[in-house]
Simulated assay, not measured.
Amino acid sequence: MSTDHAFSTDEINAVYRAIAERRDMRHFLPEPVAEDTLLRLLQAAHNAPSVGLMQPWHFIRVTDPELRQRIHAMVDSERERTAEALGERGNDFMKLKVEGIRESGELLVVALRGGREKHVFGRRTMPDMDLASAACAIQNLWLAARAKGLGMGWVSLFDPDELGTLLDIPEDGRPIAVLCLGHVEAFYDRPMLEQEEWTEGLSLEHFVSTNHYRPIEE
Rank of each mutant, 00 (worst) to 15 (best):
residue 48 A to I: 03
residue 68 R to K: 09
residue 54 M to H: 05
residue 63 T to H: 13
residue 67 L to C: 12
residue 67 L to D: 13
residue 76 D to Q: 07
residue 46 H to R: 12
residue 65 P to A: 09
residue 57 W to V: 06
residue 64 D to G: 10
residue 62 V to F: 03
residue 54 M to K: 07
residue 51 V to D: 04
residue 77 S to G: 13
residue 60 I to V: 13
residue 51 V to L: 09
residue 54 M to I: 08
residue 47 N to R: 05
residue 61 R to S: 07
residue 62 V to Y: 05
residue 70 R to E: 12
residue 47 N to G: 08
residue 67 L to M: 13
residue 54 M to S: 09
residue 70 R to A: 10
residue 74 M to S: 08
residue 54 M to L: 11
residue 47 N to W: 04
residue 47 N to C: 06
residue 61 R to T: 06
residue 76 D to W: 06
residue 75 V to T: 08
residue 72 H to K: 06
residue 49 P to R: 05
residue 72 H to D: 11
residue 50 S to I: 01
residue 68 R to F: 12
residue 58 H to A: 15
residue 58 H to S: 14
residue 52 G to K: 01
residue 61 R to K: 07
residue 70 R to V: 14
residue 63 T to Q: 13
residue 76 D to Y: 08
residue 74 M to K: 05
residue 64 D to Q: 05
residue 67 L to Y: 12
residue 46 H to Y: 14
residue 58 H to T: 13
residue 62 V to S: 04
residue 48 A to R: 00
residue 59 F to Q: 13
residue 72 H to C: 08
residue 44 A to L: 02
residue 52 G to Q: 03
residue 52 G to C: 04
residue 56 P to H: 10
residue 74 M to Y: 07
residue 64 D to L: 03
residue 49 P to V: 04
residue 56 P to G: 12
residue 67 L to Q: 10
residue 58 H to G: 10
residue 55 Q to W: 01
residue 73 A to H: 14
residue 77 S to T: 15
residue 59 F to S: 11
residue 45 A to F: 03
residue 54 M to N: 08
residue 77 S to W: 15
residue 47 N to I: 02
residue 69 Q to H: 12
residue 61 R to N: 04
residue 73 A to G: 11
residue 56 P to N: 11
residue 65 P to H: 11
residue 53 L to N: 09
residue 46 H to E: 09
residue 61 R to G: 02
residue 69 Q to V: 06
